[in-house]
């Protein structure tokens, strides 16, 4: 029979491991999901902005600049924060082009 402290040790390790896994796994999943969601939004916004650019006859320098920044951020990939920033830039560029077109 193994000594009783061994049982407690193994039990304790299992308990701690279970606790770490049960908190860490959902958290990692949530983070990954948030990142992918943010990039999905950002890509859709960049697409929309480039469509707006193509539809606009005039040059809008500021919008070009914003979109270029958004695309370069997207090219670098990154976390949810970077994706949010790229989405915000693309949306602003999109709005500028639409205003210019309606103009």
């Amino acid at each position: 029979m193994p000594p009783s402290w061994l049982i407690w040790l193994v039990g304790g390790v299992v308990l701690v491991a279970a606790g770490v896994a049960s908190t860490l796994l959902p958290r990692l999943r949530a983070r990954d999901l948030r990142r992918r969601t943010a990039w999905s939004t950002a890509r859709a916004a960049i697409d929309s902005a480039s469509v707006s650019r193509d539809a606009c006859q005039d040059q809008v320098a500021e919008a070009e600049q914003l979109l270029a920044r958004a695309e370069s951020i997207a090219a670098d990939r990154g976390g949810a924060g970077a994706a949010d920033e790229a989405a915000a830039l693309a949306e602003r560029a999109d709005r500028l082009w639409r205003e210019a077109r309606r103009g």
Binding site: R43, A44, D47, S48, V51, S52
Partner: peptide, 8 residues
């Protein structure tokens, strides 16, 4: 743009 959003 709508088609792009639908794709996304």
């Amino acid at each position: 743009r709508g088609i792009g959003k639908l794709d996304a």
